[in-house]
Design a protein around this nucleic acid. Structure first.
Length: 854
RNA sequence: GCCCCGGUGGCGGAACUGGUAGACGCACAGGACUUAAAAUCCUGAGACUCGUAAGGGUCGUGCCGGUUCGAUUCCGGCCCGGGGCACCA
């Protein structure tokens, strides 16, 4: 019977659904394991690159199941967001309809891949039963002062027509659409994530099972700096200016101050300057620059002298107060003390404007030269303070400590920790999101909606014109309401929440997905969470993972959960890339694959014969390099796609898709199938295990050990290669006339069990053919036979002076002395030993004997 | 500029704790089956080199150096590629 993936796969997919094999009763006792793939945005078209993520999760899940865990593997939909709204404008479908159609499509795709999710716990963030709790959570944050409305310079994406969080701005561009973001001073809703900056930073240390890369990115993003706020008297103001510095030890070298042009004291400071008008004009120019312009290297450092002076509290000198475009208003106090000798930026600025440079730190043990500096000396590790009053002669760390004490005792400043992290801007001027449950009242101001009035549902009869602004704002029926405080007329907030709010807590909701009385049941959540294994893309290293860690801590502080970190172990799978082709003669435009002809390792355009440039990259429609899973599955079956996808490369690495490579995976499964046919046909063969079967039996037990260890380490590519080896070894046995039915069946069924997580359909079918019932649900993950492994004969390499001179075969548990004796009496080795003496023997158990000879 | 990761055949990639480098697979070559093709099965292969052959030798994991009986692995210095952060004081 030939291997027909199509019939087999539909049969088993139906059975898994009918028998609800993946459903977990969270109240049942058991050895819990919470597996979770980041829930996707339902955009409709899944390609093999998305598949990698879910297939990986499913393989782990099936492995856990077979190992006897009560494994929970739920799935849901991050279903609010801009693409749905854009689709609505473009095609005249309601975003909800579009989203639901996509969800149905993707769900079907998951089934076709043979992926098992516990669909009884399905959630969709666009569902009022879900976003009701999103609103509830907002109210809790509001109550705790963690949600607030405030005016601040914010990022505005002109193309998406909404404000964005800092985390959604990459290189001054919108993370979604790539448009350059503008700065606007707007009143918006924020979550006070900065309040948790320190805890978020501290918590990273405990995440030992997270990739270092992600932790580093979060650390960079939080950007903790330990330093001091120091006051400099400014006689013109009649008060002092506060600056922030991480190098208080260099204060004796502070020869001027620089303020951000936006600093609130600027107007007063420039009052007496003769250049007041020019300075004001310049400030306007700087303010109107986009962040991209202001921060670009090309525009350089620019500044203006305010005409006023401050007093350095340690040297008592009068130092000029400057304005500089390189000083950021949002960070620290928006003012710095400039120490040009020991800060590169200050150095450049001082050189440009001819400001004094005073050296106050010198490299320990080196001569101090009087030659003019060419760059700032910023080394913190080996510096020693010079010409610095009481701290002269102290090494930098010590000097910092001492000067801080002095600053504090004199009452002119204090130790401070500053963060780069800014509050999370969560309001969006878009329709397709969770309405922020707040009412504006003329009399009462901002009034939160009563919890009993939740959910504030998103009206569905909204016209999508594509014209400027949020359509919600134009709906009188939604906007006009009564104030929950005074029952007078009120206006609803029409901004919706950032969809990252939805995903900041969804992992808790699966546990009580249908609970209508509370956000989740704490006892159950505390039993199942934190998530034991979380899987998703590296693109969420900061955004989603930081927000989730923040919200989890808020839930912890509310005593709703008993843990601060939501995800114990994190795995970031790599992207799948594929070759696409550009036409250099047509502005490097991408060429559809049906127009590409490959000859002699190069690519040409069929119509013109023009040589094309191949480029490997992310799969996308515009590059014409998307591999849709449907065709692949029709041709080879889902098991082939699964095996190939996992075999292609280590799962955390980027991998290039190769259509040819798929064939290898298919051949492998085909071989496995035919081995089964051959073994079934052996029904008259003897049971007795013959000598020829020994290597195969040993191999099967070795493979159990290898595959188990490798799955645990996410080395699925080599786990599969080990299975290929086992299959080859069974094939060898049969081809060379192996006769034992028992040995064949045992080794083969071991292979089938170990292969199940990767190729679930074919293995279930074979299992059934061999009389089994439900491989996933009834069979156990095999365990290697220790005694057999010990008895196994191993081949040991023999070296003389580092060169391989022979091989000996001995039982694995042979004594060292026996192994060395056998090695030295090896025929070829002896010919190398003649006339020489062995000075040293090195024995690596089970592997190698090395004789050092003189 | 700072931080992190990587560099192994024609290609994807193996190598546990320093111990036979190149597993497994693709592509390739030869063979079997076939009228033929596809499919399938068997065999071969890092490079160079000696030998009619069996079988040897030398070089080889980005480059240079070190530790070691032995280095893809450890240490020092470079080169290249990728990623993150970046006037954050």
């Amino acid at each position: 019977m030939p291997y027909e993936p199509k019939t087999i796969e539909t049969k088993w997919q139906r059975r898994w659904v009918d028998e609800r094999v993946a459903e977990v009763d969270v109240r049942e006792p058991g050895q819990k394991f919470y597996m979770l793939n980041m829930f996707p945005y339902p955009s409709g078209d899944l390609h093999v690159g998305h598949g990698r993520n879910y297939i990986l999760g499913d393989a782990l899940y099936r492995h856990l199941r077979m190992q006897g865990h009560a494994a929970l593997n739920p799935m849901g939909w991050d279903a609010f967001g801009l693409p749905a709204e854009n689709a609505a404008i473009k095609r005249g479908i309601h975003p909800g309809e579009w989203t639901r159609a996509n969800i149905a499509r993707e769900k079907k795709q998951f089934d076709r891949w043979g992926i098992l999710y516990d669909w009884s716990k399905e959630i969709a963030s666009c569902d009022p039963t879900y976003y009701r709790w999103n609103q509830w959570l907002f109210l809790q944050l509001y109550k705790r002062g963690l949600a607030y409305r405030g005016k601040a310079p914010v990022n505005w994406c002109p193309s998406c027509q909404t404000v964005l969080a800092n985390e959604q701005v990459v290189d001054a561009r919108c993370e979604r659409c790539g448009a350059e973001v503008a700065q606007r001073e707007l009143e918006q809703w924020f979550f006070r994530i900065t309040e948790y900056a320190d805890r978020l930073e501290e918590g990273l240390g405990a995440l030992t099972e997270w990739p270092d890369k992600v932790k580093t990115m979060q650390r960079n993003w939080i950007g903790r700096s330990i330093g001091a706020d120091v006051e400099f008297e400014a006689p013109v103001l009649g008060r002092s200016l506060t600056i922030f510095t991480t190098r208080p030890d260099t204060i004796f070298g502070a020869t001027f101050l620089v303020l951000a042009p936006e600093h609130p004291a600027v107007v007063e400071l420039i009052e007496s300057s003769s250049d007041r008008e020019e300075i004001t004009r310049w400030i306007e120019v700087v303010r109107n620059q986009t962040n991209l312009e202001r921060q670009s290297e090309a525009s350089g450092k620019e500044g203006r002298f305010t005409g006023s002076f401050a007093v350095n509290p340690f040297t008592r000198e009068e130092i000029p107060i400057w304005l500089g475009n390189f000083v950021l208003p949002q960070y620290g106090t928006g003012a710095i003390m400039s120490v040009p000798a020991h800060d590169q930026r200050d150095f450049e600025f001082a050189q440009q404007y001819g400001l004094p440079i005073r050296v106050v730190v010198a490299p320990a043990g080196e001569e101090i030269t009087s030659a003019p500096l060419t760059e700032a000396y910023t080394e913190k590790d080996k510096g020693v303070s010079i010409d610095s009053g009481s701290i002269t002669g102290l090494a930098t760390p010590r000097a910092i400590f001492r000067i801080l004490a002095e600053i504090e005792s004199r009452g002119i400043g204090k130790r401070t920790t500053r963060y780069r992290l800014r509050d999370w801007l969560i309001s969006r001027q878009r329709y397709w999101g969770t309405p922020i449950p707040v009412v504006y009242c003329e009399r009462c101001g901002i009034v939160p909606v009563k919890e009993s009035d939740l959910p504030i549902t998103l009206p569905l009869d909204v016209p999508f014109t594509g014209k400027q602004g949020n359509p919600l704002a134009k709906m009188a029926s939604f906007v006009e309401t009564t104030c929950p405080g005074c029952d007078g007329p009120g206006r609803r907030e029409t901004d919706t929440m950032d969809t990252f709010v939805d995903s900041s807590w969804y992992y808790t909701r699966f546990i009580s997905a249908s609970d209508t009385t509370q956000i989740f049941e704490s006892d159950l959540v505390n039993r199942w969470l934190p998530v034991d294994q979380y899987i998703g893309g590296i693109e969420h290293a900061i955004l989603h993972l930081l927000y989730a860690r923040f919200v989890c801590r808020v839930l912890f502080d509310m005593k709703l959960v008993s843990f601060e970190e939501p995800f114990t172990r994190l795995f970031n799978q790599g992207m799948i890339t594929k070759e696409g082709f550009r036409d250099p003669s047509e502005n490097m435009s991408w060429v559809p694959l049906d127009q590409v002809e490959r000859r002699d390792g190069a690519a040409y355009r069929k119509t013109t014969g023009e040589k094309l440039l191949p480029e490997v990259g992310k799969m996308s429609k515009s590059r014409f390099n998307v591999v849709p899973p449907d065709e692949l599955i029709d041709r080879f079956g889902a098991d082939t796609e699964r095996v190939y996808t996992l075999f292609i490369a280590p799962p955390d690495k980027e991998a290039a898709w190769s259509d040819d490579g798929v064939i290898g995976a298919h051949r492998f499964l085909n071989r496995v199938w035919h081995l089964g046919e051959q073994i079934v046909a052996m029904d008259t063969a003897p049971m007795a295990v013959d000598e020829a079967a020994q290597p195969m039996i040993r191999k099967s037990h070795q493979t159990i050990e290898l595959v188990t260890a490798r799955i645990g380490r996410f080395e699925l590519n080599t786990a599969i290669s080990a299975l290929m080896e086992l299959s080859n070894s069974i094939g060898d046995y049969l081809n060379r006339g192996g006769l034992s039915r028992r040995a064949s069946v045992e080794s083969y069924l071991t292979l089938i069990k170990l292969l199940h997580p990767f190729a679930p359909h074919i293995t279930e079918e074979i299992w059934e053919r061999f009389g089994g019932e439900g491989l996933l649900v009834t069979s156990k993950w095999p365990v290697p036979d220790e005694a057999l492994m010990r008895e196994a004969v191993v081949r040991i390499a023999v070296q003389v002076n580092g060169k391989l001179r022979g091989e000996i075969s001995l039982p694995a548990d042979s004594a060292e002395s026996d192994v060395i004796a056998a090695a030295s009496s090896h025929e070829r080795v002896q010919s190398y030993l003649e006339g020489k003496s062995v000075v040293k023997t090195i024995y690596v158990p089970g592997k190698l004997v090395s004789l050092v000879v003189k």
